[in-house]
Design a protein around this nucleic acid. Structure first.
Length: 582
DNA sequence: GTCGTGAACGACATATACTATGTAGTATA
């Protein structure tokens, strides 16, 4: 049972890419049509394989022609149009598009005038200095392309940067730039501010009296491997790891417009600019201003610009051009998660892979304003776990700490159980029920097939002691792929048993993913945001879990630790589900 | 390629920076 949605998206994106080569124009209407068709498909959550051509045509951006292609793909696995384009533009040609500085127009000319059919051909042409003989190209073009090729070889198939790498990198650069004299503001924007799970490049906006010292400061940093472009308004560099950093410097009064532009997404920006045009204004990265005369309408803050355009301020995580502008206009934007007042997955130094003692974790939780705090060290099913005696000893410590804390914060003595390949859990039911709070997670056997993975999760959910499933997919962004699951069956079981699903805020995990959260959005499933902290400083990661939930448009009403303290505590301590199901 | 208007056809997401070459391609959100 293949994932037909992904197959269709792959087809449409390949059609767009090959059509761009075919027409030598990235802005061709046909290319845009395939892209908008892909966007239409992306927002679908029904089983597309069941739809007829007529039903497919009801989807935005899908017309007669694309509907027929989708049906052909689903029925035969092949699409004539795509096969034809593949013949004309084989993979060796498509590989040329990955080279920075080489666009569809240049590729077309290289093929026609120099017979370049592959990256190796390009290498040869560069070595023989034949490119400079073409009109519009020169020695510098040869150098640039040679450098791009070398960089492509060096970084291989690295691709996008995981947010867990990009965020610390951005923070480090910001700290440096804030020290430059004349800098009044420095912040990251782009997909990082929108909290995408992988980042194409790190975008930084700085407000400063003068741009030059800021550019110079970035270029001189140790992490920088080479400078791509350096101008008066923007500079781009590449780090040794291969992550591109784009820096934009503006005057303080232009900051809002610059942040808006640099945060994107591209589709969001285009919609805003069209909205500006409809009002006789134009929006760029410096200001929202009148077309006639150029009088500035708003520029200093994002709020002022949205407001002038008749919109409430839109949180960066929502700016993906998937209905947020329409919602802002109608006043139906999703609510922000607000204060998170509890954590239900974290480890103390009792777990062999964690660092901070319980006292430090509890003190940090109190400082954060948590009202409910579940200590959940690893059970013996994982290498980092411990046995019964250690847990009983810890329980006594938890009770003693609670007595000292009073009413300010409620401590729960919990455990993170390991889910075995057949859904088996640590210890016995009676011992598990001795805990105040049990979550259960997958830590191994990642290679089982979909049926087996689904069965083990559902089995764990049916255990009377288990209240929540931790990091459901067990993925590591940029590392381990998610385990194969029948999500609908998992959501069914979560609804039936009342088992909560964790939104894990650890940056390498972010699990549930936004994609899965969106699919779970309309189910009666309760979510819990957690830090999965392994040291006290990591408790702040619940805020990443909150960002992920907001990005998926999850209603805070569905998030247990966004509720009022009394309601949350009553829910957390309610073990009746166990007796009812057992 | 799709879509809306009127039944075949035109319209179809914005605005800017940098670079190398000498006007336009490529890149960015």
């Amino acid at each position: 049972m293949a994932d037909s949605k992904q197959d269709i998206l792959d087809m449409l994106r390949e059609l767009a890419e090959l059509t761009m080569l075919e027409e030598g124009d990235p802005q061709s209407f046909r290319v845009r049509a395939y892209e908008s068709a892909a966007q239409g498909i992306e927002s679908q959550s029904t089983d597309l394989a069941k739809l007829t051509a007529k039903e497919l045509e009801k989807i935005d951006g899908i017309g007669k022609s694309t509907a027929a292609k989708i049906r052909q793909l689903l029925e035969t696995g092949k699409v004539d149009k795509l096969e034809g384009l593949r013949q004309k533009h084989p993979p060796a040609i498509v590989a040329l598009t990955r080279i920075q500085g080489l666009g569809p127009k240049a590729i077309k000319r290289l093929r026609a005038e120099l017979g370049v059919q592959s990256v190796d051909d390009l290498r040869r042409v560069l070595a023989e200095h034949k490119l400079r003989e073409l009109k519009g190209f020169g020695p510098k073009s040869e150098d640039k392309l040679a450098e791009s090729l070398a960089r492509l070889d060096a970084q291989g198939q690295m691709g996008r940067t995981p947010v867990s790498v990009a965020l610390p990198l951005a923070e480090r650069i910001l700290a440096r730039l804030r020290d430059v004299p004349g800098v009044t503001h420095a912040a990251y924007c782009g997909s990082l501010r929108r909290f995408a799970e992988t980042i194409g490049d790190v975008d930084i906006v700085v407000a400063a009296a003068a741009a030059e010292p800021v550019m110079a400061s970035l270029v001189s940093m140790n992490v920088v491997e080479r400078v791509l472009v350096q101008g008066a308004a923007k500079t781009s560099v590449v780090t040794h790891r291969g992550t591109q950093i784009d820096l934009r410097v503006v005057a303080a009064h232009q900051l809002g417009a610059a942040q808006l532009y640099f945060t994107g997404s591209k589709g969001h920006n285009i919609k805003l600019r069209m909205r500006a045009l409809a009002r006789g204004w134009t929006l760029n990265e410096y200001a929202l201003s009148e077309i006639e005369g150029g009088k500035v309408v708003a520029s200093e803050t994002e709020e002022a610009i949205y407001s002038a355009l008749g919109l409430a301020w839109i949180a960066p995580v929502l700016r993906e051009d998937c209905g947020e502008i329409e919602a802002a206009e109608k006043g139906t934007l999703p609510k922000s998660v607000g204060a998170v007042i509890g954590d239900f997955h974290l480890h103390t130094s009792l777990s062999k892979d964690a660092k901070s003692p319980m006292e430090a974790m509890v003190a940090a939780a109190k400082a954060r304003g948590h009202r409910v705090f579940a200590i959940t060290d690893h059970a013996e099913g994982t290498l980092a776990g411990v046995g019964r005696d250690a847990f009983l000893e810890q329980r006594a410590q938890v009770r003693a700490l609670q007595a000292a804390l009073g009413d300010s914060m409620r401590l729960l003595h919990g455990v993170e159980l390991n889910i075995g390949p057949n859904g088996e859990l640590d210890y016995d039911l009676e011992f598990r029920r001795g805990f105040d709070w049990c979550l259960a997670s997958v830590h191994d056997h990642f290679e089982l097939d979909r049926a087996a993975q689904t069965r083990r999760i559902v089995t764990a959910m049916q255990d009377p002691a288990v209240r929540m499933i931790g990091h459901l997919s067990a993925r590591v962004i940029g590392g381990r792929p998610p385990i194969d699951l029948d999500l609908d069956a998992v959501f069914d079981a979560a609804e039936a048993t009342g088992t909560a699903l964790e939104v894990n805020g650890s940056l390498p995990r972010l699990d549930l993913s936004v994609e899965v959260l969106r699919r779970a959005r309309d189910r009666k499933v309760t979510f819990v945001l957690t830090s999965d902290a392994h040291e006290a400083g990591e408790l702040e990661r619940v805020r990443f879990a909150a960002l992920n939930a907001e990005r998926a448009w999850i209603d805070p009403e569905r998030i247990a630790n966004a509720w009022a303290p009394e309601r949350l505590l009553a829910w957390a301590l309610d073990k009746s589900r166990g007796t009812a199901v057992a």
